[in-house]
Design a protein around this nucleic acid. Structure first.
Lengths: 353, 353
DNA sequence: ACGGATTTCGACAACGATGTCAACGCAGTG
DNA sequence: CACTGCGTTGACATCGTTGTCGAAATCCGT
């Protein structure tokens, strides 16, 4: 159906195209395109005519069509496969990506995986089908070999928080092992030798790393970990609370806890409160959370820096998009132990020194 | 440049197109398209050949090109103009949108405005340029007339948390006025008559509504609000803390506070702690926050339900996208007062009844 | 006034995909 | 045997935009 002038006038209900603008301005679509894109070499008279037509028709360029035609094919969009856009870690990461992307006029597509491996693939597919220029992935599945094709096809893929398996790619990880070890060293230094471990799903790579750090640190002090004081697979606050209740009311309860994830920390705190042990039993949590400093006692944590991780990931992405080449590299972002009170409750084995 | 067979074999570095698939399978692009889209009326032999070619070339359809050609032109993407993807309100809203969108295979573009009116327009532009099928907007500017064109062009636009100005559109709002009034009634019922108000930027519509509710509730009880106990434009935790410190150490300090926003609430709590007044001065905050129940005293709040607001907004969007028509409507999502302790500290005017 | 350089402009094809439609092959019918 | 009808298939145009390239108009210096 050809576009006639009278149609254009009547067509307030539909979006104007460059053809419509060109027709109204009495120029070719190509010239209209030139004006819209601010190219030089168009006579002032035509520039004016096109600009008036643009305003009159409220023309908005179709960026997807433009990207399709353009040589680079860039869509100026990055896909972020996150754990859950609503949790603080993911959303801080998301925000960091956005901040860097904003300076380049790039948008972020974000989606939540909820630890569902199938969902991870679905989201990656959805983002690649929409021609995302790059992907940021917090993997939930146990293998990301399916991403090899995207990477060889030139799409930068950066893994964040958890390392890739089955494929070589850049990764930005917290130093989970060192962070967990620091927590344990801190507790031992405050006189604890019987330190309970409460952790997330053992399928999650970071959880495994933190357990490893916990065990290594204990072994550094010649302490043999008590198997029944190590509990995995606590994926909800309530599961963590139940586990902490059980351990604390058992015979020979731990004198301190290392809680290896946010919700686990909070669940454990609830349990200790209920048992009125929160001023007696020490606790260090992995991953900081808002208001940790306002609780009684304030909660000592090993803080990650998800915002910084996002900044690093975004930097890698844009360096790759700018054409830089390098071997896939893993970047460790350090953690920081923040003593606030709960981790400084002294235990029964004060240091001799 | 034409696609030759040997090019296809060598072209592992570039993304395969439907042309490549068709060529390798020995069929026309149209037939390949039919197979990829699962249309009927293709002989089993060709279906097989195409599927093999798809697998061999790791073909992934270009959804943006498809959307461009398709009659509906839907991109299966919704733009969300949020306050800040990293704050709990926005991210809960975001997540609700995602949950509903997921069931329709629709993705969410999200961006943060940070209360910057210019940024609001930029994001809307970016989303419409990318042909988002619909927009969810938490406005920060004082006028959204610029969106009228999108709406008449048939793009559903739903305002959330704050009403639109200068344009008619659906809106999903918390019942700010009633919620604020409920907080004040609650405090009065516990013996308070001198209730300080600490609020966010007065340019934000919700802040104005909450102040209005506060004033009306006071007036219902025949209380004249004290002008110097009303402080606006507290947009950071620290500004709120400073204001609470100032009011509380002034002569004739309020016996209770209504803090009209999240960070303001937390800032006020910090101030009261520092002055050791947190067990003496009552406080009700607007908007719930995690761990409010673990503080000492636990914090009484008027809870909004951003997740529900997102669900309602998403429902409106998809009903519009499905072709339903109705006059723009405002949906009020009720708030809920959650007594936890800080709001039940009794004041100097216990009720006679 | 002339030739050549420069500027301005539009026709055309193409990006990757699909709607339209006509052509083809093959079976069944009169 | 010619004809109809159905199921397959591909040629072509098109979505909105821009890269390429040559034509036309304008400019300059001599």
């Amino acid at each position: 159906m050809p576009h006639h002038a009278e149609e254009i006038a009547a067509a307030v209900t539909t979006r104007a195209t460059l053809r419509d603008v060109a027709m109204l301005a009495g120029v070719s679509p190509k010239t209209a395109s030139r004006v819209v894109n601010g190219e030089t070499g168009v006579s002032p008279a035509k520039v004016n005519a096109v600009q008036r037509a643009v305003a009159q028709l409220n023309y908005r360029p179709n960026f997807t069509a433009s990207a399709l035609r353009r040589s680079t094919g860039r869509t100026a969009a990055i896909g972020a496969v996150l754990e859950n856009v609503a949790n603080p870690f993911s959303s801080a990461l998301h925000r960091a990506l956005e901040d860097v992307a904003r300076s380049r006029d790039v948008m972020i597509f974000a989606g939540s995986v909820d630890e569902d491996p199938a969902r991870e693939k679905i989201l990656v597919q959805a983002f690649t089908a929409r021609q995302a220029d790059a992907l940021v992935v917090v993997p939930a599945s146990d293998n990301q070999a399916y991403l090899a094709h995207e990477i060889t096809a030139g799409t930068p893929v950066i893994f964040v928080d958890r390392p890739p398996v089955g494929v070589l790619a850049d990764a930005v990880l917290a130093d989970n092992r060192a962070g967990a070890a620091a927590a344990v060293h801190h507790l031992v230094a405050h006189g604890h030798r019987d330190i309970g471990y409460l952790g997330d799903l053992s399928t999650i790579a970071t959880a495994a790393e933190r357990l490893q750090g916990y065990k290594e640190a204990l072994s550094d002090h010649g302490i043999r970990p008590q198997p029944d004081h190590i509990v995995h697979d606590l994926h909800t606050e309530d599961a963590a609370r139940a586990a902490a209740l059980r351990l604390t009311t058992g015979r020979r309860p731990p004198t301190a806890y290392f809680t290896a994830q946010n919700l686990v920390t909070i669940g454990a705190i609830r349990a200790l409160r209920e048992l009125h042990q929160h001023e007696q039993i020490a606790l260090v949590g992995f991953d900081d959370f808002p208001l940790a400093d306002l609780l009684q006692p304030a909660v000592t944590v090993v803080a990650q820096d998800p915002f910084r991780m996002g900044l690093v990931a975004a930097d890698l992405i844009f360096r790759r998009l700018d054409g830089q080449r390098w071997e896939p590299t893993t970047h460790l972002v350090p953690t920081r132990l923040i003593p606030r009170g709960s981790g400084e409750i002294t235990g029964p084995h004060p240091r001799q020194s």
